[in-house]
Design a protein around this nucleic acid. Structure first.
Lengths: 344, 344
DNA sequence: AGAAATTATGGAAGCGCTTTCATATTGAAT
DNA sequence: ATTCAATATGAAAGCGCTTCCATAATTTCT
């Protein structure tokens, strides 16, 4: 290894070595048209030889892009869902030579603060995770500032913004069918945050599948837990403390399913012998619970990776389908929290 | 294609309105000396009135700060530990008007890649979480590039780099004492990643406390689980499948403690009646486990917040103690996974 | 063949700041 | 009053890039 000089190498060094103008170097580096093959090669060689690192700030100042992607969330990071998203986004960024800036925007964040952030950073793109992906104020600000935006599991389409999601309806349908196939006829449901589109979809799928199978569910067996463990505790308590209770509970995420198992344990209800429990997400917790949780795995990491990829494509001027979401497959994970209902 | 131009407010607009030169505005905004009070006020007023947002890229290009803090980790984000760190760092950044870029640097990341990242982003500071905080290559690169660096729970001091940690020794000692106080005389230990300093400290504290209390532990009862759930499963299996087993196990983090509970369950060993289990960290999982885990809560968020604060101070030219780490308190969390040992 | 369209290339003007450097202005010390 | 240091201030020179514009080289079309 030759020891490198600390003095920075600029675009004009590359231009000199390659025997072309800085304009041409810039063109090559940005993949523009109108550069002859031989010059392009010369530039690339010179650039590699000198180990040239374009100055992000100079580029951002002169141009309009920033080489920074933003991962914007509403809830503070934590939990496998967001971490997974972040991992995927980071991976894609690294591949494309971009960097990932993380930022929190709550529902109550002032428009001023959002705009200030956006004008200051001039993000090359923004990835919005639920429920930030449905924050009207944020969306409008991003649009006004012309920040290419990709949304994950959004509620409703937003013109010009591509999105990535799973088919929550089909997934929840499949999960409900699983319980019915085991022989359950009395199934409860704990919904997530009604503000999340995915939550509403899951509930809808549950209801429709139940109806399609000619079953019925008392409204008392459908509760909302807000995707939170604590909310799940309350919901499970409401459902399980009734005189007539279901033989299975479908919780719209793993955290709430964990809560159901805890409540069942307290009430001395045996899982899965007396009560089957299923979750959604396949967080690490799912396999740790006892019994281990039957759940539906979301490709979270992949979703964010694709979202970042869409942004990168948009930046390159490629057209991306912004109206029809990219839909990824889920994977049913059978563990030991489900069984056939007790014979009555 | 409708793209509306939002006229930007620049430093010279502020200068004009305040009736001073751009130099003076720059001085005020950067908190430099040699500006008269009245002008300073005028600048601040003009700036507020115009809602001026300094252009990060222009500042970075002209100066050599970047207004970007880096959170560098070795393992991909995930888990409450890193998420907590990130939350703390984000919070502090927001307060100081900085932004947080996240990046992964594995043990095997090439020096080239690290240097390229550092020259490209010219970070205003870097926060290193374990085990990245002990990555020699990374540390050397940061030093060479003069990036102010704060480390969290590092192994050994590194000249010029401040650090934040908890007193792992005392915490592990306290935890061990807790078990001894309950009457346990036969205690096993599952260590974390031997490359983490904190892990080594916890083990050392365990050994010394045991010795100080005139107890002894067969080497078979001390296993390594690498801070991972899976590693914990193996370790727990090795300890619990022996003919003579301990009445308590101290796992160096919650994930491994969860594994102990799972293994105990499989082996029909009742927790806490026949086996007490304690963890470390107080991750959300800890309260979900059944029985809920007695553990030691680390102020992870606070640690990162302080680390970011140190960086910001350094940037401002303040001197920070770089030799003696900032040490934060832990909190003992008593739940139901510990009890007195069965009467023999 | 020449004209017109297309493709290539570089000069130079910024992008919006920070930072010398030179110059006032003030206060303290003779 | 006079001198010297400390304090204040602005003009102007970049920081390293992108991009507009003018021009040259090439191809395609009459």
């Amino acid at each position: 290894m030759t020891s490198k000089k600390v003095s920075k190498i600029t675009i004009s060094d590359v231009a000199r070595v390659a025997g072309v103008s800085v304009t041409t170097v810039s063109r090559v580096l940005n993949g523009e048209r109108y550069v002859r093959e031989d010059k392009k090669r010369a530039v690339l060689e010179a650039s590699a030889k000198l180990d040239y690192q374009p100055n992000v700030y100079a580029r951002s100042l002169a141009g309009d892009r920033s080489y920074l992607l933003g991962l914007l969330f509403d809830e503070a990071p934590g939990g496998e869902y967001l971490s997974g998203m972040q991992r995927g986004a980071m991976r894609q960024c690294k591949e494309a030579g971009l960097h990932l800036v993380v930022e929190h925007f709550g529902r109550s964040t002032a428009l001023d603060e959002i705009e200030s952030f956006l004008t200051k950073l001039k993000l090359s793109g923004a990835i919005l995770t639920p429920p930030a992906c449905d924050n009207k104020v944020l969306l409008a600000a991003l649009e006004r500032k012309n920040v290419p935006t990709a949304r994950i599991s959004p509620s409703a389409p937003y013109p010009g913004m591509p999105s990535v999601k799973i088919n929550d309806f089909e997934a929840a349908q499949e999960m409900t069918e699983h319980l019915i196939a085991l022989g359950h006829k009395r199934i409860g449901f704990i919904a997530g945050d009604p503000e999340h589109a995915d939550s509403r979809e899951r509930l809808k799928a549950f209801r429709e599948t139940i109806a399609a199978r000619k079953l019925s569910v008392p409204e008392d067996w459908i509760q909302t837990g807000g995707y939170l463990f604590e909310g799940g505790l309350d919901a499970a308590m409401k459902i399980l403390s009734q005189s007539r209770r279901p033989t299975a509970i479908f919780a719209a995420n793993d955290d709430m399913a964990a809560a159901v198992i805890v409540v069942a344990d307290r009430l001395k209800i045996k899982v899965p012998d007396e009560l089957s429990v299923v979750g959604f997400d396949d967080t690490p917790m799912a396999s740790v619970l006892s019994p281990a949780l039957t759940t539906m795995r979301q490709p979270v990491e992949e979703m964010a990776k694709i979202a970042a990829g869409l942004l990168i494509d948009m930046q390159k001027g490629k057209k991306v389908a912004s109206e029809t979401p990219v839909v990824l497959d889920v994977e049913f994970v059978l563990r030991s929290s489900t069984a056939s209902p007790p014979q009555v």
